[in-house]
Design a protein around this nucleic acid. Structure first.
Length: 628
DNA sequence: ATAGGGTTAG
């Protein structure tokens, strides 16, 4: 382990409140050091933005050129921040550490974590003493680079050197764990801090751990923790309330969120724009538009100005509802009020038009944002590509795909999954399989979505057997299939007349301890209905209910379609009545099927009335224009 | 304003 050298470098740290413990460690190891701590962790000195590159050639570390040489040599390709850093390094006397930390803060805000690490590295290399703040910055940067392990290495050195870590150091580590989706470890560390009385958590500690708990989907526990911290004498602040409110909103438990809002106001903790943004998001996501608008009025009363997030949230919600015109008018209000639309604003609008299949308008928005000098990002491109693919404009999708690299961006796994979907959709299986190879050459690792697109694509192009053998292949390669993959294959088998295969897959997934979900059951049910096995389908509905999976509108529409195809009109009427009783309406394809039923039956007043009643409102909306 | 916690898009 390169810890020795690192410790020596860290021993020169100036810690603000902790007196430096001068002991044997300090005197014994500081003589033979010629590489700094962070360098010894194997980090390359000149790193790209956000890219942590591990040094593949350790030799370059030991052949150390003279310090000044090394710096002057690379001074041409330094950016402004790095340039001012180098000027500071050579100032005499050396600027205060706070000046360095301030500059590092600026760099971190720009998310240039590797650069920050590299600069701290250089300070250590030049044997400039650094302090605990700077080490926190280092840990924070490592966390964002998904290298919490290196963050802990820095921490280890601080401790090894006999320094008392600050609460903020623990907070930074906790944040790092949360960022790496290690909420469990974060919780463990948090409990340890309290149990072993290592340090008393402060507001930020609680906020960080709450965030982790909420991200892991345990909002209830977060509430318990809220009560716990109150009991411990730490008053929850608006950030903590907002974290939990946001989590409730994401779970669509908007009423719980609103309750908490009332509670915080009662306790004289004022919500801010972020609190309201979360609530607006939640209200919009459950279509409680009026209340979402009321939030704006409430904000106004409290003199809280809506910000870009507020407007973007409304714009996106309108777009998802197909109300792009309304979204556009929000855009105008936003501009009038002096809030600048950003890449998220325009990407939402693009998606809104894509959802309506209005690709020309989507491209228009794209061009507008380019004109306004707002840089599209990879999500913008993925959205556009997705739109083109949904409309089967694969050539256009490919053209946009090629533009990604042209704009100095890199395609992601999602980009590839989307293009794969498009290629399969137009039946270009060979091109899709070729692209699947290409992405792994980059290398990009396919995820579950990629696999499900691939399996689904093969099935939909009548290549179920290939899909099945591909599935076995990736399992052999160590991919643990999830329910979604099984579901795609069950669906594909059913639709290709392989009910037996589907049934085998169904029991296989259950035997693996996976829980079939509503989509799985519906796919299986559809298989039964295709074969006219209506009774079996009905039995499965009972079985799924017993397993705690609540049938949805699709379940009943699948049954309806089976009954229409295989049973007497009387049974259809009976089923329609049942759907009515359960409050389900039928979907576009059921509607279509019913319209093409025996015309005399349709005259039946009972029947016609039920059809009128059950036909959903949005059957006339844009989505179903084809049906009209 | 020397670090560490909360919000939007595929």
């Amino acid at each position: 382990m390169p810890m020795r050298g690192g410790c020596a470098a860290l021993l020169r740290m100036r810690l603000p409140s902790t007196p430096t413990r001068k002991g044997t460690l300090l005197s014994s190891s500081s003589s033979s050091i010629n590489t700094s701590f962070l360098l010894s962790l194997g980090l390359h000195n000149s790193m790209d933005n956000n890219q942590l590159s591990l040094n593949s050639n350790p030799k370059s570390l030991s052949t150390t050129p003279a310090k000044s040489d090394r710096i002057i040599k690379s001074i041409d390709n330094l950016d402004d921040d790095e340039f001012s850093f180098h000027q500071m390094i050579h100032k005499k006397p050396l600027p205060l550490l706070s000046e360095f930390n301030r500059l590092l803060g600026v760099i971190v805000k720009k998310k240039r974590y590797s650069t920050a690490i590299s600069l701290i590295n250089q300070m250590l290399f030049l044997r400039i003493s650094v302090d605990a703040y700077m080490m926190n910055i280092a840990i924070n940067c490592f966390s964002h680079l998904r290298r919490i392990d290196l963050g802990f290495a820095v921490f280890g050195c601080i401790v090894k050197c006999g320094h008392e870590p600050l609460v903020s150091t623990y907070n930074t580590l906790l944040k790092g764990l949360v960022l790496s989706d290690k909420a469990f470890e974060a919780e463990h560390l948090f409990k340890k801090l309290i149990k072993e009385k290592i340090c008393e958590p402060n507001e930020v500690t609680y906020g960080t751990i709450m965030n982790g708990i909420c991200k892991a989907g345990n909002t209830k526990i977060a509430i318990e923790l809220l009560r716990f911290m109150e009991k411990r004498g730490c008053k929850p602040n608006k950030e903590i309330y907002t974290t939990i409110i946001d989590s409730f909103c994401k779970e669509k438990k908007v009423d719980d969120a609103l309750k908490l809002l009332t509670q915080m106001i009662d306790k004289r903790v004022s919500p801010n724009v972020i609190t309201y943004n979360s609530l607006i998001y939640g209200l919009c996501s459950v279509n409680r538009w009026e209340e979402a608008k009321e939030m704006i009025i409430e904000m106004d009363k409290r003199k809280i100005n809506p910000d870009v997030f507020t407007f973007n949230t409304f714009i996106d919600a309108f777009c998802k509802e197909g109300m792009v015109e309304d979204a556009e008018s929000v855009l105008h209000v936003m501009i009038e009020r002096g809030e600048k639309p950003d890449v998220v604003t325009y990407s939402s609008l693009i998606d809104g038009y894509c959802l309506r299949g209005e690709m020309k308008k989507a491209m228009g928005v794209f061009n507008t944002m380019i004109d306004k000098k707002i840089k599209p990002n990879i999500i913008t491109f993925n959205t556009l590509i997705n739109g083109h693919c949904k409309r089967s404009n694969i050539d256009e999708a490919m053209r946009v795909f090629k533009e990604i690299t042209h704009r100095n961006l890199e395609p992601t796994v999602s980009t590839y999954s989307t293009i794969l979907y498009g290629l399969f959709k137009v039946g270009r299986c060979e091109d899709a399989l070729k692209l699947f190879e290409d992405m792994q050459f980059i290398p990009l690792t396919p995820n579950f979505i990629t696999y499900s697109v691939l399996l689904d694509g093969l099935c939909k192009n009548n290549r179920v057997n290939e899909a099945l053998s591909f599935f076995r292949d990736i399992m052999k390669k160590g991919v643990n299939p999830n329910v979604a993959l099984y579901t795609v294959l069950i669906d594909g088998s059913c639709k290709n007349g392989k009910l037996d295969v589907a049934l085998d897959l169904f029991s296989e997934l259950c035997s693996k301890g996976l829980q079939p979900n509503i989509v799985t059951y519906n796919a299986m049910n559809n298989g039964f209905c295709i074969e006219g096995m209506i009774e079996e389908a009905k039995e499965l509905v009972i079985k799924m209910e017993k397993n705690g999976v609540v049938p949805n509108s699709s379940t009943y529409n699948i049954l309806l379609q089976g009954i229409v195809k295989w049973r007497k009109p009387k049974d259809v009427l009976l089923h329609l009545k049942e759907m009515d009783a359960k409050g389900f309406s039928f979907d576009a394809s059921s509607f279509y099927l019913l319209l093409h039923m025996n015309p005399t039956k349709k005259q039946d007043s009972n029947f016609a009335e039920l059809i009128r009643k059950l036909a959903p409102q949005d059957i006339l909306k844009y989505k179903f224009r084809l049906v009209k």
